[in-house]
Design a protein around this nucleic acid. Structure first.
Lengths: 178, 178, 178, 178
DNA sequence: CATGAATGAGGATTCATTCAT
DNA sequence: GATGAATGAATCCTCATTCAT
């Protein structure tokens, strides 16, 4: 009984997230999402009390992918190469998913899973970073936070450039990190 | 008569720009500016048909300063050092004036003077860039546009970092350019 | 089976009332009560079809106490003193229980027990009032309804005063009744 | 030029206030008022930033009348009779104008004229009260604030009684004040 | 040129109530 | 009986823009 209800709710939730994923995360309107999803506003608010909560949900899968990236990087032998790989692929991910940056930069997370993902991502990156630093592959004053902001800054550069120049910007970033 | 009219208009314009400069450029409300300036909304609209036009006016002085920076750099002997100087000081300027980035990145300019300033800035930077490239001081694939977007990206990094870390980010950028 | 169902229902009901008692009766939200009680909204609606019905339940105990007060007063020798006592303690009760006034003033009652309580309270007070009037202790034009509205009015005065002045207002009322 | 504009605005303002006056002050909706007045919501918000501001405007004339009442009372010879007159007529005014109580009880006033009116009313009443107290016509512990809350309480009694019993309640109040 | 009143779409949010399971 | 997801009308409020004077 509850199950079918729950199933319905799950479907609604999924529908909302799907609709939201198709929108520009920078201008998500919960009312708009509701209309497009063919649902009542209240339903959307029940599932996601704020725009940020919805963005977190939209971004969730890609954040998992990000974490997987970090795990894979952590398993590599060469920390320098691994870190570079993580930065390159992570940035590529952020470019594909326009909502990631907002979630990554958010000081507070609405969802515990998101918080956990961000935390693990941070931890893994930090370990990698320290290892790379110890090998002298990377600037001594580079921290995880700084790296994150740099990646977001480069994402911003690529986006505002409008061109397909991503690799140039990434290369420049990688070069700057050493 | 006309003179007094013109004088009035000039004073209004100046007042509007002054008030707007004191606001966060990201959330300029023409209505709000009008109220704070003690003027009618219509007056503001007459002088500045859009928010962007007002931002251009607000930013104008700093854009001149930017151009002066570029001129000074162009007069230097060592193109590599001059370019670095331009990037460092330019970025510092952008950090001080939150409206500059929007004007620099705008595809179209409302005001001809702004367009001219941007153009001269671009030309000067390009010459410098070519010279630096010829000396091998800078990546061969670096273009003025790319440089501009990189600087804006780093500005974004500094702003989102919230900290007073500007020099770290700038150093990283400079390092990446080579 | 039925017994356990009934027991469950009873427990739910009690839980709802307990939660509601802890809320400001002026802004009871059935949804909110349900959430705080850890129950479904439907369950709350089953037990209490309207906010007023819930307020009646919340207030029920204090209405019994009110009736006890009236019974005790009716048992007194001196009708004048008894009436004063009833008014004083009744008002004190109303000040403690912010939901009482709405129930007392309601033209229609959702619950039969509430109706019975209100009726008995009214009867007892009326007898007392007539006795006090016969003794000349009270204005000749004072009726039970008028007395009730006066007490509610004084409650309103105390509440809006914000201060701890209750006794002043009650004294003034008592004085006015003679 | 401005004058006709101003005249229009004045007419709009008057229209809004007129419409609002015809509504139950307890449930004024600015949107609703706008619709009924045939005006845009923004226009209403321009004139009255909040419901309370609108209520103040609606009530304004009657607050002036209240002040006149107080002035007239202050000019009387017999302070006791004058105070009684003020209470009786003031209460009658409050019963006619359902918005007065909210304005009288408001801790803060949006409009300076309203504040001035309330202040003068308070001062005049206080002088009268002191004089009446000196003559022994009134309880020694009666203050202006207490009197105001009492009058509002009695207004509440009359309103909830639903009947045309006003004079009974007022008489009771007057009696209680001595 | 200046004015500022008016507009009204747009967006956020809440909550009483229903109903399928 | 219990559940809680869904609904959507209702409310609040903002702001870019127009236009008559």
């Amino acid at each position: 009984m509850q199950d079918s209800r729950r199933a319905d709710a799950k479907r609604s939730r999924a529908r909302i997230v799907d609709v939201a994923r198709a929108c520009d995360p920078a201008q998500l309107r919960l009312n708009d999402v509701a209309k497009r999803a063919g649902l009542g506003v209240g339903t959307v608010y029940r599932h996601f009390p704020s725009v940020h909560a919805l963005v977190e949900a939209v971004v969730s899968d890609d954040l998992v992918a990000y974490r997987e990236l970090a795990r894979a990087a952590a398993a590599e032998r060469d920390p320098a190469a691994a870190l570079e790989m993580l930065v390159r692929r992570g940035l590529a991910l952020q470019l594909l998913d326009g909502g990631l940056q907002a979630v990554l930069l958010a000081a507070e997370d609405g969802n515990a899973e998101i918080a956990a993902l961000k935390n693990e991502l941070r931890q893994l990156t930090e370990s990698l970073l320290i290892a790379a630093r110890d090998v002298g592959a990377v600037r001594a004053d580079l921290t995880v936070e700084r790296l994150m902001h740099l990646v977001c800054g480069i994402e911003h550069a690529v986006r505002t450039s409008g061109t397909d120049d991503a690799s140039f910007y990434i290369d420049t970033l990688i070069a700057g990190l050493r």
